[in-house]
Amino acid sequence: MIAEEPRVDGTQVTELAQSLEAELARLIVGQKELLRDTVIALIAGGHVLLEGVPGLGKTVLVRSLGQALTMSFSRIQFTPDLMPADIVGTNVIGDEAGRREFHYQAGPIFANLVLADEINRATPKTQSALLEAMQERTVTVGTQTRPLPNPFFVLATQNPIELEGTYPLPEAQLDRFFFKVLVPFPGEQDLLEIARRTTGESTPQLKPVADAATVLHAQRVAREVPIAEHVLGYAARLITATHPDRTQLDGVKRYVRWGASPRGMQTLILAGKVRALLEGRYNVAFDDLSAVATPALRHRIFLQFEAEADGIAADKIISDILERTPKEPGRE
């Protein structure tokens, strides 16, 4: 008997996202954008790179997500001596019916939710092992390729202030992340609330709100959200505007070395679709694209040294592009 395909219903996705955000918000104080971007990436099936100083709740967020979703969760603390096998697993010798033979010992990457903590502390070799798994969603050990569990969601964190003994992710590998989310320092009220919640007798325990099947279903529904041609055109214009040789924007020409890849556009549209659902809509609006443009493109725009010298960040470039790229059609 063939299992019946769940009925496509956008409202279910909306409810899933809202309940997930509400559940996470019980433990994560403030950080609404962080939660929203994380949920969007989860439903879109992408991975997230979280960047923030220590102690802002990055790890708590991932752990909470694991609690709120009935899915397997593993955490990998990246260190300089971490080896690829420590992530993807390895073949070990063992007794099997009186015979000694190699059998595969799965690594921590075999989980639905993986927290790659301080990913930039591992060597490039180890980083690439993880990033290959993120892209292909399979792991090859020896001669055997093994699929990773589905859904497979990686949240990597990195500390922007400690550069000594770190290995910054190469551009090509950064592109594998769906979003790069900056974790801001909380405001004063949020700090007070964090203190109240985490220094008392007990910390809140999260209830599971969805399982893997629900997340997979939501991912399929999100891809069905219609997008109009002119909105698609706007996304293309945004991506084109990030390229210094194809834009009229002086800031881009001056500060950008290389613009966003086509994968960036895919990210933009997919994230826009999820956001539309989260907003209770069944079509992608310009606002959706604008809202997700910064986390989707900030790690895909590579700046010149001059930008660093002038203190220009990618977020500023994206902000200019959003401001100056026309949404309205050319004529009345």
């Binding site: 219609p226 109009a228 002119h230 909105v231 079509n283 992608v284 609006a285 310009f286």
Partner: peptide, 16 residues
């Protein structure tokens, strides 16, 4: 929020 234009553009579509 682009509801009308999307609906008009896809008025003959029968997607999910």
């Amino acid at each position: 929020k682009e509801r009308l234009s999307t609906a008009w553009e896809r008025r003959t579509e029968s997607g999910t």
